[in-house]
Amino acid sequence: MELSARVGVVPAGVRVDPATDPHAQVFISYAREDEAVAQRLRELLHGEGWDVWWDRDLYVGTTWEQHLLQVLEGCRAVVLVWSAAAAASDWVGREMAAAAGAEKLLPCVLDATPVPPPYDALQFAPLQGWTGDRGHPALPGLFAGLERHVLPSRIETVRPGFDTACLGPEIDLPGIPGVGDELPYLHFSVVMNPARRLAWYVASEVRPQKTPPERPVSWSPDPTLSRLFQPANQHFTGTGFDRGHLAAAASVGWGEPRQAEIAVRQAFYWTNMAPQAANVNRSTWLALEQLERRLAERHGAVAVFGGPVLDPQDPLHVVTNETRGRIRARQTFRLPRAFWKVLVWSAGGGLRSACFDLPNVDAPALPVRRPVDEIEAVTGLDFPPEVRDAVPADAAELRT
Rank of each mutant, 00 (worst) to 15 (best):
S83C: 12
P212C: 11
C108G: 05
W219E: 02
P208K: 04
A301H: 10
Y269D: 02
V280N: 15
D55I: 05
I327E: 14
E289P: 13
F236N: 03
P22C: 12
E95N: 10
E170S: 11
V71R: 00
G380S: 07
A203N: 06
V52A: 08
P223L: 13
D181V: 14
T157A: 08
V378I: 13
L122T: 01
A393T: 06
Y201P: 10
D90S: 10
L310M: 04
V368M: 00
A232D: 15
E376C: 10
P336M: 06
A19I: 06
H149N: 07
N321R: 14
R196W: 00
D120H: 15
A138M: 12
V318L: 13
E103Q: 09
F268M: 05
R148K: 07
M96N: 01
L58N: 10
L295C: 09
R227P: 04
V81S: 03
W50G: 06
L142R: 15
A31T: 03
A99K: 02
G348Q: 08
V378Q: 09
T113I: 01
Y59H: 15
R399G: 08
V206M: 01
F27L: 06
W53R: 05
P275M: 00
H187V: 00
I171D: 07
A165Y: 14
P126I: 13
